[in-house]
Deep mutational scan, measured.
Amino acid sequence: ATNIVSKVKWYNSTKNFGFIEQDNGGKDVFVHKSAVDAAGLHSLEEGQDVIFDLEEKQGKAYAVNLRIK
């Protein structure tokens, strides 16, 4: 899926990962520091509106092509 609009559930800049809620009630989506860095960001804030693409690797959903709404 591409261009999903949602909100950051939480992000831990010390552990370099977090999760984004899915508005459709699906499972929370993992977001890694590499996606945050690629977006030119230093961190994410809880409740922040984001747009991302969903990529599945080894049966897990990852946020990629992250951008701020």
Results as ranks from 00 to 15, higher is better:
A38F: 08
Q48L: 09
L54W: 05
A1R: 14
G18Y: 03
F17W: 08
Q48F: 06
N24F: 11
H32S: 07
V36H: 01
A1K: 15
I68S: 08
N24M: 10
V29P: 01
R67C: 05
T14H: 13
A61P: 07
K7N: 04
K15E: 04
Q58H: 14
Q48H: 06
K15A: 08
K7F: 07
Q58V: 08
V5W: 11
T2F: 13
D37I: 15
N12P: 00
V29E: 00
A63L: 04
G26N: 10
H32L: 04
K7L: 05
K69P: 14
L66I: 12
Q58F: 14
N3H: 09
D28P: 07
Q58N: 15
E55W: 13
I20L: 15
F19M: 05
N12S: 14
I20H: 01
G25E: 08
G40C: 09
N3P: 07
E21M: 15
K15I: 11
Q48C: 09
I68D: 06
L41Q: 06
A1H: 13
D37H: 14
H32P: 04
D49Y: 15
S6K: 04
G18A: 02
V31S: 00
V36E: 01
D53F: 04
R67I: 07
N65M: 04
F17P: 00
N16M: 11
A61Y: 15
N65P: 00
A63H: 01
N16C: 13
N3R: 08
L41A: 08
D53M: 04
L41G: 05
W10H: 03
L54P: 00
N65G: 03
Y62Q: 11
F52L: 03
T14C: 14
G47W: 05
W10C: 08
I51R: 05
K7R: 13
I51D: 04
G40M: 07
K9H: 06
G40S: 06
A35N: 05
G25M: 09
A63E: 03
Q58K: 12
V36F: 05
K69N: 12
D28V: 05
K27D: 09
I51W: 08
D49Q: 14
G25S: 09
H32N: 05
G59C: 07
E56D: 08
K27Y: 09
L66N: 00
V5M: 12
A63F: 02
G40D: 06
T14W: 12
E46V: 14
H42M: 12
D28M: 08
V29C: 04
G47L: 04
V5D: 06
A39C: 05
R67P: 01
K15H: 07
D49F: 15
K60P: 04
V31L: 07
E45A: 12
G47D: 05
V64T: 10
E21N: 11
W10F: 10
Q22H: 14
A1M: 13
V50N: 00
I4S: 06
F19C: 04
G26C: 10
A1G: 12
L44M: 05
E56Y: 15
G25F: 09
V64H: 05
E56G: 07
F30M: 04
L41C: 08
D28L: 07
K60F: 11
I20S: 01
E45P: 07
D28T: 05
A63I: 04
A39G: 06
D23H: 14
R67G: 03
S43K: 12
I20R: 00
L66W: 00
L41T: 04
K60S: 07
V31W: 02
N16Y: 09
F52K: 00
F19E: 01
D49I: 15
I20E: 02
Y62W: 13
E46M: 14
G47I: 02
V50M: 05
E45T: 13
S34C: 11
I68H: 06
A63P: 02
G18C: 03
V50Q: 01
F52I: 06
Y11P: 00
G26Q: 12
S34K: 10
A38R: 11
Q22F: 14
H42N: 12
L41F: 10
G26R: 12
N3T: 08
N24S: 11
K7Y: 06
L44A: 00
Y62H: 09
L41P: 02
D28I: 05
H42R: 13
E46P: 15
V5A: 12
S43T: 14
L41W: 11
K33I: 06
E21D: 08
K60W: 11
I68K: 06
D53Y: 04
F30P: 01
Q48A: 09
I51P: 00
A1Q: 13
V64I: 12
K15N: 06
S43L: 11
E55A: 12
K60T: 07
N24P: 10
F30G: 00
K15C: 10
S34Y: 09
G18M: 02
H42L: 13
Y11D: 01
A1T: 13
V64A: 07
E46C: 13
Q48T: 09
A39F: 03
D28K: 04
K60R: 13
N3Y: 08
W10R: 03
N16F: 09
N65E: 03
K15V: 08
G26K: 12
A61S: 13
N65Q: 04
D28W: 06
A38V: 08
F17C: 04
L44N: 01
S34M: 11
E46D: 10
V50Y: 03
E45D: 10
L54Q: 04
A61H: 12
V31D: 00
L41Y: 10
K27V: 10
D37T: 14
T14Y: 13
K33V: 08
K15S: 07
H42F: 13
T2K: 14
K57W: 12
E21G: 13
S13Q: 12
A38M: 09
G47T: 03
Y11T: 00
N3K: 07
A35H: 06
A35V: 09
N65S: 04
D53S: 05
H42G: 11
R67M: 05
T14A: 13
E56K: 12
G40Q: 07
E46N: 13
V36M: 08
